Amino acid sequence: MLSEQMLRIAKENLQTHIEIEKEEEYIKSLINPLQVWISSASAPACYNLIPLLANGEVFGMATEVSIHLLDSSHYKEILHGIVMEAEDLAFPLLRSVSMHTELDDAFVQADIVILLDDILFQHEIPSLEDCIRQVTEQCKVYGSLIEKNANSKVKVIVSGKTFVNLRALMIMTFAPSIDGQNIIAVAMFLENAAKAMLARKLNMNSAVKDVIVWGNISGNSYVDLSKAKVYKYDSAIWGPPNFSRHLLDMIYDGNWVRSEFAFVLSSLSSWGHHCLGMSPAHVIATVLRYWYQDSPPGEIVSMGILSEGQFCIPEGIIFSMPVRFQDGSWEVITETEISEETQEALKRLAHDLIQVIGKFTFPPPSLSSSQTLPERESNPNTQREN
């Protein structure tokens, strides 16, 4: 019956059904907290990340979380100290904090897995081939464990400064049952650094948006300013809060953009650049908040995702490109127009990334139950191109 009255009843029934489902999800969230696993948990980024995950702003004020810290036994005392300090925060939404140094229990029932840098440095910086071998072995172990122990709809965030795109691709390879849509590489660190540099150049607070990072996040990348906008700029032109101006119309120093700006950003993705973990933690928390509560309407977010041929980028590689988060998922902003210059840059970046992928080996995943997390050196002091 398609009468107007029946259509109204159907609409009301649908709305009631949606409200009941939301109520059930809310009750379930109170019974079963969100299980969050963080690898390399002794790193400064993890220390700064825990309060951001537990204060309710990322997942919502109705979602409790249980945080699991994973690292080698060499860092057991550091992990114990982090657990005690996190418990002392007394966040109402933090159900529990636990430490893990054995691989057998890694990622059990994980809803979210955050992979910080896991490259295994010895006392001296190894060769590129050694780094590739170590990264492959680590991703093989983690991918197999995620496949075996995590929830089927687990969300995996790959962060850090070493082979970020390729680590995400290998996690997909060794965890084949996990939806590729749920494995992403974080590019917002470079995106935010670019916004901050541009804001300082304009002598203003950081109110720059829609900067796009293309390509290999921890290697050869291209920062695209063609869509960048500036808000709240103090000048003779005034407008409402949503009024913006094109950034390239306001920066007249093209040489600065091509030289100093590009050089500083390239150095940020090098192994020799260190930070205390505040920025990576903020970036990871922001990505998770967008994933669970949507990104701001109309705003572009750079993210390393599996290419399906968008923008003529070869399929099957992890490539940073513009996305938006909506309804618990993300989608590529394919309507983004790119210039011929940018298209040529994308071809070059894709070619370089494929060449690096060719150096990696993807052996069949296997895992010994007696394996333990190897020790790692977290302070490399030599810069290499990755």
Rank of each mutant, 00 (worst) to 15 (best):
H100N: 06
Q343R: 15
P92W: 08
N32Y: 14
G219C: 02
N379R: 15
Y292M: 02
P296N: 02
V135Q: 13
A175H: 10
L94S: 03
V356Y: 11
R376I: 06
H274V: 02
E344A: 14
H74E: 07
K76A: 11
Q343W: 09
E191A: 11
A187V: 06
G304A: 01
A196K: 14
F243M: 03
L49I: 06
L34P: 02
D105I: 05
A350R: 07
S244M: 05
L225H: 04
S302P: 02
M321G: 14
L34Y: 11
V287K: 12
I237D: 01
G316Q: 07
R289W: 03
R289L: 01
L276D: 15
S270F: 03
H68S: 08
P365A: 04
A236Q: 09
R167W: 09
H80G: 00
R245H: 09
K209P: 01
P365G: 07
E385W: 12
S73C: 10
I317G: 05
V257K: 11
E129C: 04
E344P: 00
P51S: 05
I157R: 09
V323G: 07
I171M: 00
M321A: 13
D117S: 14
N203K: 14
K227I: 02
S98Q: 14
V158A: 05
G143S: 07
N379V: 08
E377L: 10
A41K: 06
L202V: 06
E385F: 11
N203L: 03
Y292V: 08
H123M: 12
Y292D: 00
L248I: 11
R384Q: 07
K201M: 07
V211W: 03
S270V: 04
S267R: 15
V156N: 00
S152R: 15
I284N: 10
E331Y: 14
D253A: 05
I9P: 00
Y292W: 10
I82F: 02
S152I: 13
N13P: 00
I183N: 03
F325Y: 15
G239S: 06
A236M: 10
V208I: 15
H351T: 12
N381T: 11
F189R: 12
E21V: 09
S226Q: 08
F360D: 01
L166R: 15
C275R: 13
A10F: 02
S368E: 05
G239T: 04
R384G: 03
E124F: 10
K140M: 14
M197D: 10
L34K: 15
I20A: 05
G60I: 14
N32H: 14
L190T: 15
S370N: 13
V287L: 06
L89H: 07
G239L: 04
I67P: 01
H123I: 10
K28D: 02
R95V: 10
S98G: 09
L7F: 03
E137I: 10
I313Q: 02
V230H: 03
T101G: 04
V58L: 03
M188E: 14
M172K: 15
L202I: 02
